[in-house]
């Protein structure tokens, strides 16, 4: 289900007026009275979303992404960019999860309003892919499935191992949206634990891949060649991050 356009507009415009609801209340009275129940073309067992984990740790994020991806498996990327679907979920079925995961009890009003605007609405590409409490989990799963179709959890384990890995990988669609290339990065992360352990090393590795890989159609390289390329980028990044400045 998703909310009507006017409901979506009003919720966004009225965030400051509704802070009490976001802090500890709900929207059930508005939901019963207004245009909140436009049906989608498929059914989904939204009750299962009660199992979402709120601690924010990597294990929890992986499990949550698998759960949301499974419950909403019939959502397409086209539909997944529809703000009004995610607004419904973060304000009704997953209000408790969204609140516990992204809002702090002692937040000042301004900070709370900012956090709500960021995590309860998905109006733009980055808001939907990276920030909204539920849609980011769906996109984690969608991207992981694009990388490793038969075993998305394998990809999730590496790309969600740390917040900065997601940032430096998923948020570089020029690399991660290309399945052949993205898969090569996943293999490199699995093969070189140092990349998973070191934030600066991973950042330098991605920069090197971006630089050395510019203009190359990896889509027609075989996996072996891509792995050799990744090895070379890893070595270059490791040298660059361990070099001591000369005096």
């Amino acid at each position: 289900m998703y909310v009507g356009q006017q409901v979506a507009d009003e919720l966004k415009n009225d965030v400051s007026e509704n802070l009490t609801r976001y802090r500890a209340g709900d929207f059930l009275d508005l939901e019963a009275a207004g245009d909140w129940r436009i049906p989608l073309s498929f059914d989904a067992d939204l009750d299962r979303l009660g199992g979402l984990i709120t601690d924010g740790g990597p294990e929890g994020e992986i499990k949550n992404s698998l759960l949301v991806g499974d419950v909403l498996s019939r959502l397409t990327p086209t539909l997944a960019r529809e703000n009004r679907i995610w607004i419904r979920l973060s304000h009704v079925e997953c209000l408790e999860y969204s609140r516990k995961r992204w809002l702090q009890v002692d937040m000042e009003d301004d900070a709370l309003a900012d956090a709500v605007s960021k995590h309860f609405f998905a109006p733009t590409l980055t808001a939907c892919r990276d920030d909204h409490a539920l849609s980011r989990l769906w996109w984690n799963h969608c991207i992981a499935r694009q990388l490793v179709p038969d075993a998305p959890e394998q990809a999730l384990k590496v790309i969600l191992a740390r917040a900065d890995i997601r940032l430096n990988f998923v948020e570089r669609p020029g690399i991660a949206a290309r399945p052949t290339l993205g898969r090569g990065i996943v293999r490199a992360l699995e093969k070189n634990p140092a990349l998973l352990a070191g934030e600066r090393l991973f950042q330098m590795f991605m920069k090197t891949v971006n630089l050395r890989g510019a203009g190359i159609m990896f889509e027609i390289w075989g996996d072996n060649r891509i792995d050799q390329f990744m090895d070379a980028c890893f070595k270059e990044a490791r040298t660059a991050t361990t070099q001591k400045p000369t005096t």
């Binding site: 990327p77 997944a80 590409l125 892919r129 669609p173 949206a177 290309r178 159609m217 889509e219």
Partner: peptide, 11 residues
């Protein structure tokens, strides 16, 4: 073919 809005980038 690329569509940034839906994370599509294929040959």
């Amino acid at each position: 073919i690329t569509c940034q809005e839906t994370y599509l980038d294929t040959f």
